[in-house]
Amino acid sequence: MDRRQGARAQVDFPVSALVDGHRHRCRAIDLSPTGMVVERAPALAGRALPAVTPFELDLGVGRPIRLRARPVWDRDNLLAVRFVVMSDADRLTIAEHLDQRAHRREPLH
Rank of each mutant, 00 (worst) to 15 (best):
L92Y: 15
C26H: 08
R104F: 15
D12C: 15
R66M: 04
P50Y: 02
D2Q: 13
L78T: 11
I29G: 12
R104T: 13
P64L: 12
Q10K: 12
A9C: 13
Q100K: 10
P42M: 03
R82E: 08
P54H: 02
E56P: 01
G35M: 00
L78P: 08
A9K: 04
D76W: 02
W73G: 07
L92F: 15
I94Q: 15
P14K: 07
D99F: 10
M36R: 04
T53R: 06
T93W: 13
T53V: 05
A7C: 03
V52T: 10
R75C: 02
A7N: 01
H109M: 04
L44E: 05
S87T: 04
R25F: 12
W73H: 09
M86R: 06
A9R: 01
D76I: 07
V38P: 01
R3W: 09
T93G: 15
P71V: 04
A48H: 03
R63K: 14
Q100T: 14
S32N: 09
L92M: 15
L44N: 01
A45K: 08
V84Q: 11
H97L: 13
D76T: 00
W73V: 00
R3T: 05
R68I: 06
R4V: 02
E56I: 02
P33K: 12
D58E: 01
R104M: 07
P14N: 06
H103E: 10
A9V: 05
A102D: 03
E39L: 11
V61Y: 15
R47P: 02
S16C: 08
Q100R: 14
